[in-house]
């Protein structure tokens, strides 16, 4: 592959976690005021995608699924340096759990003839981490999750990853195409360049694809999602003494009591 790799990076629009609050009167969640932002771990995915393009050549296409205004996260990725962006947007996607979501992204990655698909470790609003392995499984591709570092081997059509595993790490070589979930915080995402940012926010128009465009109109949405939300409860706080002491010795005595 002398003309570089087709690199796709998946990004998601989420409510800003710092803005989600609980209404003290009703105990219900208040998400309406929360600003919509790009999922924080996705910045590491975009950075890794751009670094890989710098190494092996090719293009980076940002890919998202969401309502029409989710194009904002594609603009963030393009501002950072992605070459293009595609938004999967269709009311038919509504209510999709991770199974159809990863199917839609997998079909789009195939359509984009991807060699490498990046995603973040997990999203801050759902925190499942299931979508990157799901994309890989739908396409029968290799997967590398919890990635700390990457090493490209274009002459072998392989990507080598250092992965974080319990108690240590492993280095795994994967054949292309491969799906990579970058570990959160594993690199330093670049800031958007001024000119690129202006382009991303003005002239850049992402393509929008529907479920029908991907040929999966009967395989997405709430009805085909294996999991459903059966209910939602606010978590009850554990009752505590809440006693604040003035002297360390008093604290030490309380600790000694427990011991």
């Amino acid at each position: 592959m002398t003309d570089g790799w087709n690199i796709v990076v998946c990004v998601k629009q989420v409510p800003d976690a710092d803005d989600v609050s609980i209404d003290p009167e009703t105990g219900r969640l208040n998400r309406s005021d929360a600003e919509a932002v790009m999922n924080a771990p996705d910045y590491n995915a975009v950075e890794a995608a751009l670094e890989l393009r710098d190494e092996v050549g090719g293009t980076v296409t940002a890919l998202s699924m969401g309502p029409p205004n989710a194009d904002a996260v594609l603009r963030v990725a393009v501002g950072m340096g992605a070459d293009d962006g595609v938004l999967l947007s269709d009311p038919a996607f509504g209510g999709s759990d991770t199974w159809p979501t990863s199917l839609a992204l997998a079909r789009a990655a195939e359509e984009l003839d991807a060699d490498v698909v990046f995603g973040g470790e997990e999203t801050t609003d759902s925190s499942t981490g299931q979508v990157p392995p799901g994309i890989a499984a739908h396409n029968g591709w290799a997967q590398l999750t919890y990635v700390e570092e990457l090493e490209s081997r274009p002459e072998e059509d392989k990507l080598v990853a250092k992965r974080d595993v319990e108690g240590g790490y492993e280095r795994v070589a994967a054949e292309l195409p491969v799906v990579v979930a970058m570990g959160f915080g594993e690199n330093d995402p670049r800031p958007a360049g001024l000119h690129r940012k202006i382009y991303a926010e003005t002239d850049f128009e992402p393509e929008t694809w529907t479920a029908e465009d991907l040929g999966i109109e009967d395989e997405v949405g709430l009805a085909v999602s294996p999991t459903q939300v059966g209910g939602m409860d606010t978590a009850d706080p554990v009752p505590r003494e809440q006693e604040v002491v003035d002297e360390t010795d008093e604290l030490a005595e309380q600790i000694a009591e427990v011991l």
């Binding site: 759990d97 991770t98 199974w99 990863s102 925190s127 499942t128 981490g129 299931q130 979508v131 990157p132 392995p133 799901g134 890989a136 499984a137 739908h138 997967q143 999750t145 919890y146 992965r163 974080d164 595993v165 319990e166 294996p226 999991t227």
Partner: peptide
């Protein structure tokens, strides 16, 4: 990490419902 890597992979071909 191993369990989540495995679960995300195997839920798709079996069309399982997976909750993290």
């Amino acid at each position: 990490h191993t369990g989540r890597d495995f679960a995300g992979r195997v839920a798709v071909p079996t069309h399982a419902g997976l909750t993290a």
